[in-house]
Design a protein around this nucleic acid. Sequence first.
DNA 1: CTGAAAGCGCTTACAG
DNA 2: CTGAAAGCGCTTACAG
Lengths: 360, 360
Amino acid sequence: MRPGRHQRGGPVQSTQDSVKSSAKVTIADVAREAGVSKGLVSFALNDRPGVAADTRARILQVAEALGWTPSLRARSLSSKRSFALGLVIARDPEVLGSDPFFTSFIAGVETVLAPEGLALVLSVVPDEETELQTYRTLVSDGRVDGVFLSDLRIDDARIQCLADLGLPTVTLGRPDQPSPFPAVSIDDTHGIAESVRHLAGLGHRRIAHVAGSPAMLHGSRRQEAFTSAMRAAGLGDGQIVETDFSIAAGADAARRLLSQPEPPTAIVFANDPMAIAGIGVAQELGIRVPEDVSITGFDDIEFARYVYPALTTVGATPLVWGRAAAATLLGLIRTGGADDVDLPAARLIIRGSASVPAPG
Amino acid sequence: MRPGRHQRGGPVQSTQDSVKSSAKVTIADVAREAGVSKGLVSFALNDRPGVAADTRARILQVAEALGWTPSLRARSLSSKRSFALGLVIARDPEVLGSDPFFTSFIAGVETVLAPEGLALVLSVVPDEETELQTYRTLVSDGRVDGVFLSDLRIDDARIQCLADLGLPTVTLGRPDQPSPFPAVSIDDTHGIAESVRHLAGLGHRRIAHVAGSPAMLHGSRRQEAFTSAMRAAGLGDGQIVETDFSIAAGADAARRLLSQPEPPTAIVFANDPMAIAGIGVAQELGIRVPEDVSITGFDDIEFARYVYPALTTVGATPLVWGRAAAATLLGLIRTGGADDVDLPAARLIIRGSASVPAPG
DNA sequence: CTGAAAGCGCTTACAG
DNA sequence: CTGAAAGCGCTTACAG
């Protein structure tokens, strides 16, 4: 079949012309039909006080009968709202693809937005400068009524930027600086500490950590959690290799750690994709998992259950996080304030990739 | 630290009041300052003919000086456009998370939308009925000027729905029915055929296929490609297990195939996540990859390079696809018509998971 | 080539 | 509790 040229409204014919004609009903039609003013229809629609109960009922009934849907565009212009929330993701798309966090997070967000008639505007940008520019454009275009701020960084410049823009924001996690925005957080240090204790309990002494980026809050926080858990277990500081959270960097780190004269007997990875790459590297080097080296991850992505050996990891709940963040942002926008939310800590899920170290 | 309550505009103070005051500049200010009518400013902004070159230059210069950004909301209301494109994804979020297709696709879309000042509205819905309802809402709200239709299905009801709604659409792949919409496609049958030929060339005779959902166009098309390639190689029809493309189903299928008395010596998986699960299952069963069973995938997700053995697979290019689809949809919206686009066929990428079968 | 005016479809004070 | 009117900030025929 050769590529062809398509015009709008081609071979497939519309069978529902009623849809199109009914799309033209306006508030004026409803007002006339109900015998009231447009203003009153608006009041009834928006549940504002000052409309007699029976009048309101009649208005809503007429609206229903006429198939009236208030024009979002007109409402936006006059009320200066956009009925949409924004999420800007600044990551290399290649890296992004291997991290299922955002798709689950977005699915969680949608469960609260959809029933409210709100939309999600998504941007994927290559770097922080573009991200800041995107926020400015989003605000000057009036595209969104608020945004989610993810992947918090050390001294995150985006917080001041969003505060300057006056854009209602919810941060995913608590920033390391004064922030005017509510934070929806999940404790991830607990899971790292649990991982270390689990491995120490199995008898491991040389435990290494493949950390995420120290410039990112969850990277540095997990690294700190690792260090203090190691000390608490009397195992010293433990060897640490920092990465940018990417699979490639995780594989490199694993290769470096396992190629040493005295390699660790266990490695705690800061996320699942790196841990899975770590399993691959070990196998490639002829090092058995978990007999020769135990491996743990973080996130519990779906792959974790299906690689071999199945990955012992910390279970994050991005869907729940998305739901909570959306509810909080909505509350902030509607009431002008919102409380911080602390989600239940992520817990260790024990599978096959960690076991007692081989003797010797 | 205890959760606290946040008000808008808290401790962080705005340092750029100019931003806020300049946000109030309207077309009337520009018109007055430039000594012309609002209409003429609008004409100049939109590059419409009928404005003297020097007048246009003066207007744009004044606009620049005043820091005027035309109000998207006002433009939307009067021009009946929304300056946004939509993507609705109907998948289980868990399954979605393991498939990096959409994040890369979206990144590709963004590269063309951002420079045009257009936004992407994203919806993740649980099922087809909700998806259809989402399109209707998108249209009646005037949220988007067009949408991308992905994951094409056999007898896809969404095409008629979108045609009825009169919503400009680009389909990812060519539907199996008359469609009024341009299609942006990538040939994936070629890659499957290449996989079969590669395996046959290595000496495999018993080759199985873990197919995707037969209700989905790319699932059934890849399956047909497998069958005809097998016949062309004189290897019969080959054993086929159908799945829903999920990792879990892929693992089940692999387990079933490999637990037979006379298991296949090679398995062609319809996507990478299932193939990776297949490698895991084989290892779990003590079956060596590729010595005892060769495995190939489809997509070339990032993980494919980092599992062990690295996955021989077919390289898809979702980023390129996103770019082409966005360009096509834009063209359709602006000119009322657009040509189909055929992207270069996905090609086989040879890595370590497929080799000559063990003798015997 | 340019201006004055109506219109897009709502919301929101302001009167009564 | 309800109505009449102005306003949100653009675009678009219609005149000239």
